[in-house]
Amino acid sequence: MAKWTILAEGCKGCGLCVEACPKKILCLDSGTINHKGHTPARMMDESRCTGCGFCATMCPDCVITISR
C-alpha cells in the first residue's frame, strides 16, 4: 500500500495532480484554505492509491511525497 503525503502549505491548488491521478482519488479540498489562500489537494481514499507517482510527476510545487 502506498503512503501519500502533501505539504498543504506549499500547495497552490492548481489541480494538475487531480487531473493526472488515474484512480481519481485526489480532489481540491474546498474546506481548507492555506496561508497563501489556496485550496490544497487532498487524498480521498488512500487505500486505492497504487503509488504510481503520476500526481507527484505533474506537481509544479514538489509538495507531494509518496512511499510504498
Binding site: 502549505e9 489556496h38 507517482g53 507527484a56 506537481c59 509544479p60 510545487d61 511525497t65
Partner: peptide, 25 residues
C-alpha cells in the same frame, strides 16, 4: 521505499510561480 519526493538540489523555498505554471516541474 520513497517513490517521489523533493530532490536534494531544490531548496524548500516555495516558488513565486503562478498556480499550475510548469516552471516548477
Amino acid at each position: 521505499m520513497i517513490v517521489a519526493t523533493r530532490p536534494h538540489a531544490l531548496t524548500t523555498a516555495p516558488t513565486h510561480y503562478c498556480p499550475g505554471c510548469t516552471h516548477g516541474i
